[in-house]
Design a protein around this nucleic acid. Structure first.
Lengths: 401, 401
DNA sequence: GTAAATTAGTATGCCAATCAAACAAATCAC
DNA sequence: GTGATTTGTTTGATTGGCATACTAATTTAC
């Protein structure tokens, strides 16, 4: 009879090692885990029987630099994606999205729906998530049960750590965990995560095979400026998940848009509103981002001047953050990304000028993940928790008993 | 025959659990580790025989809220401090210090010596460390071999990750790891750590029993302003250990002391030089920190005005950092601490004003560890690595074979 | 005061995870 | 080809951990 069984510690460790490396021979895995080849052979046998790993058939052993090495070549073992699924969701201002990530870390299903965030109730959002989760679950192989659902929200828990504030949605003191718990019962564990944090994970989680200790800063620029911090491959949350709220970074005295209570903040210089307000101020033209970018591309001097001002403050902010956090990469996301290519040189020159000699200059890159970012990152966080051996997200496999 | 043997994974996990909790009964330890009581009993027997744990005799079971609980009371087991030692050193501008921390996390030995940092060679510093290490080793029980030496340095590795820059000592491109390796051979592993990072660890490592997931920001204020970031109880290093270099945070346009290349930085407003320069500007008096504090205590209006200006910019900087990192505690260290009590209210009012509603306000505290901070923190980092199961710092015990 | 309930610690037998050692298989170097 | 090297598997032995008892020490109920 086939039953679902919890994985033993070394099985989880083996999967984590396979995930890190992409694929490994049994012998290489044994070295990685500090076990003997015989033990590892048995381990891999157990994992394949449980449907969590498989021998790689395709393309032979191309990725491993096996060519030129003496001795019998190994058979690469990799994670079987269908071994498990992790759900992520995003409650945005305009839409709600859900995705499923498989055990191999690949996105396997997604579904989304328009949602008029401000003005809608949390209950309405949860109802939509419930429907979308049913939809993506139907896209997954028969009989699979996800390991959890992580919901990215544009807000933060209050000081009590439970009730959520999502100002941008007009929600205050909402117990989202309870609402979601009511909807999904005890099917699987449910988590909540700030959306900017989730995007940061989506942008960096396993961005390069074999590299899982990245230091990165992901910056989201819309009207507000938010961000997420990745330290050694792990999300830096801070006390309530609010670390990375760099919009309030005070870099000057006023700002392009003035805020009496908190003047001089980063977002009042580099946010979307701020950029367009500056353009209005210089050119007298009221434009959207697309129009502004078109003017910039056409060489309109007022647009160029606006972009230069913007780049100056943006560079200031990045330099400050680079000193404080010393990331390897800074990744930009949001609609203002369309402007960045026009000022990349200026910003990066400012950045490296500002940093002390010998200080590593981070690269500045544009987002790779698209609109699915928050939901994808939320799912990746579950994937990470499962492979790190967190007992709450303990992996399971099918075993003959 | 007694031989030294590596600990098995569960033995290390048990020690880590004992360290977190201070002391646990075998039954409580079993629950913590997810093992049965019988297994845990055997585990504890092994640890006590290996000289790494012991039953607590003193003061009975006071700390555990054992009173009023039904059932047979447990016998508390705690770490035997003599089970192992971790060495930390600090190369300062004026002195070199070394300390030893035992397996229970207690400081057990220290020795220091004056050192004219700028002008001295790295070789001279290493020679002094060698002597001081011999000195503190002689203070430890016979025959103990430390698990490692971690040296806190006022500098950072270059982009190559190896050669060190310590501008304040006048050292550039020094391969400290090699020099230390030559001095100590393969006696034990040797690490290097930035001094501000080490202080951050010293201030937070096991500050409260049972709490090991603190989010804190430690700020060092001398002429320069540096710092270290603790995220969930772990040091946030950034790419080369330079995270927390908040002195370059740009919070204004100029500064109390002007720096043409990087104007408006935090340290040009709140560093010791900046504070005293401001005082000179307002009062016309050239003073040291002690004199300034005396004037402040005496109610000298120019000193009060200076402190108010200082508090304003300091509050700005703290608010910015609190948003970015969301720490639970901000801990201040350095000679300027003497000024802080006079402006604590202003700074903290500014801080909570600036933070958004619902945002947790960090507490601001003054340093608890003294001059030994950097060396102590360096040693604590080794302690942490050992108990976290890092194979490089694998704990060992004596066992009959 | 005594009995019942509860929890801690230990002893015993069993299972299974791991190892060490040996062997067969597949490749490279010559 | 032959030898060297590395992989994967088999075998038997070891041991780490569990379930299940059992005894010990304390609180609660009566």
């Amino acid at each position: 009879m086939l039953v679902s069984t919890d994985l033993r510690p070394n099985e989880t460790r083996a999967l984590a090692a396979l995930f890190r490396a992409g694929a490994l021979s049994r012998a290489a895995l044994a070295r990685d885990l500090g076990l003997t080849r015989s033990t590892t052979g048995a381990l891999v046998l157990g994992l394949t029987e449980a449907g969590l790993a498989r021998e790689r058939s395709d393309g032979a052993d191309d990725e491993q630099d096996g060519e030129g090495r003496v001795g019998r070549p190994g058979i690469l073992v990799e994670i079987e994606g269908n071994g498990g699924f992790f759900l992520g969701a995003y409650i945005g201002v305009n839409w709600i999205a859900t995705v499923a990530v498989d055990l191999a870390g690949a996105q396997r299903a997604s579904a989304s729906r328009a949602f008029a965030g401000p003005g809608s109730t949390p209950e309405a959002a949860v109802a939509i998530i419930e429907e979308l989760v049913a939809e993506i679950r139907s896209q997954l192989p028969e009989g699979t049960r996800p390991y959890g659902l992580n919901v990215a929200v544009p807000g933060f828990p209050a000081a009590d750590g439970v009730s959520y504030h999502a100002t941008i949605l007009g929600w205050h003191g909402v117990n989202l965990a309870e609402l979601l718990g009511n909807a999904f019962g005890d099917d699987f564990p449910i988590l909540l995560e700030n959306d900017a944090n989730a995007v940061a994970v989506a942008e960096t989680y396993r961005a390069q095979p074999g590299k899982d200790d990245e230091d990165a800063l992901v910056i989201l620029i819309e009207n507000g400026v938010g961000g997420g911090i990745i330290n050694a491959g792990r999300l830096h949350r801070g006390r309530l998940g609010g670390a990375g709220e760099i919009g309030h970074l005070r870099i000057g005295d006023e700002g392009f848009v003035f805020d009496a209570k908190r003047p001089g903040r980063l977002e009042s210089y580099v946010g979307k509103d701020a950029l367009l307000a500056r353009y209005l101020h210089i050119s007298g033209r009221r434009a959207g981002v697309d129009e502004f970018v078109a003017a910039l591309a056409a060489g309109d001097p007022t647009a160029v001047a606006t972009a230069r001002d913007w780049a100056l403050w943006f560079g200031r902010g990045l330099a400050t953050l680079a000193c404080t956090l010393q990331p390897e990469r800074i990744i930009l996301s949001g609609s203002v990304n369309a402007v960045y290519p026009f000022v990349a040189e200026q910003v990066e020159a400012f950045l490296s000028d500002f940093l002390a000699e010998g200080y590593p200059v981070p690269t500045v890159e544009l987002s790779r993940v698209g609109a699915d970012g928050p939901a994808l990152g939320a799912a990746c966080l579950l994937h990470q928790a499962s492979l790190s051996g967190d007992p709450k997200f303990q992996l399971r496999g099918l075993a003959a008993r």
